[in-house]
Write a protein that binds this DNA or RNA. Structure first.
Ligand SMILES: [Mn+2]
Ligand SMILES: [Mn+2]
Ligand SMILES: [Zn+2]
Ligand SMILES: [Zn+2]
Lengths: 158, 158
DNA sequence: TTGATAATGAAAATCGTTTTCAATAAGGAG
DNA sequence: CTCCTTATTGAAAACGATTTTCATTATCAA
């Protein structure tokens, strides 16, 4: 039965071995949760989700794992202004480079991935200019738009 | 002695009267601190600075005032990733629209105000496209670049 | 199978920020 | 100017997300 051996061995296994890290049950569970959702989960959200399958996994471990994954560049950590950090997978089959629209009325967060060509153009120029002007090497960027979603705009009008 | 009357009556006085707010000693002191610096102060930074002149002003009042000023749009509140909010005046004689370069090596924050024409171009297109695609009305934006400053880059090379 | 040690979990600690509540003071009315 | 309403304040306590501590457990290379 060839091909059966690697079932349950997702794409991220190699990343851990490389860094000298151990691939533990909590870490796999957390990565599974993150890879299944397109939402922007908090540490507690993830803890609760993991808890359904692995009730013994603690919130502390969730925090530690998220910190590690962020260091490894496997997840992004965001501050959308509601007092808790939120996380999402940075790579993998599903996720693509995107930014966020944040509704200041209802706190809804919308993934936004259009106009990446314009953005790339802007970033390329900025990167070059900033490197020269401030002797600063850009590694990553954060772009967020704040405003009102359709529902909140209609609510306001009423 | 015409012209003497308004000494000590800065440009922001009118903003308070308009909103039905009282222009108190702590609020003026906080605005004075913010208007004198180009740094990105935390609530405690501001508290300590105000404390030199007005030792009776409490940290609680600083937090409350900062919240009010942010609501009024007179200051911006930032998260540069060091676990505390940082503030800067959003308008006034000195400040101009700008964004931030954040060194992930030493946490230094550099004000960046070049290439605003490119940015404006990008934002204009994004705004229009997002309004149509997501029915979302952009009110403001946050752009931050992360990377390594000159000193940290040299340190790393050594 | 075994040993070194990375990783874990429960509880306590941390720390920036918010809430509580009685006392104070800004500023309009008279 | 004086009085009065009430917005504002300050000290202390509460809050809540995140981090630290430390004894126990589990990973995985040998
Ligand atoms: Mn997203
Ligand atoms: Mn700035
Ligand atoms: Zn909304
Ligand atoms: Zn640096």
């Amino acid at each position: 039965m060839p091909g059966r051996r690697n079932v349950g061995s997702p794409w991220w296994h190699g990343r851990f071995r490389g860094g000298g890290y151990r691939l533990t049950v909590p870490r796999q569970a957390i990565l599974n949760v993150l890879s299944r959702t397109s939402r922007h989960l908090s540490a507690e959200d993830i803890y609760l989700e993991v808890h359904k399958v692995h009730p013994h996994v603690g919130l502390t471990t969730v925090y530690r794992t998220l910190e590690l994954l962020a260091e490894m560049g496997m997840i992004f950590k965001f501050d959308f202004g509601d007092g808790r950090a939120r996380y999402e997978l940075s790579e993998g089959p599903k996720s693509a480079h995107h930014h966020h629209l944040i509704c200041t009325g209802c706190r809804r967060v919308i993934d936004y991935s259009g106009f990446m060509d314009e953005e790339l153009e802007f970033l390329k120029r900025a990167e070059k200019g900033l490197a020269k002007k401030y002797d600063f090497e850009i590694k990553s960027h954060l772009i967020q738009f704040y405003g009102l979603c359709d529902k909140c705009r209609k609510k306001k009008a009423a």
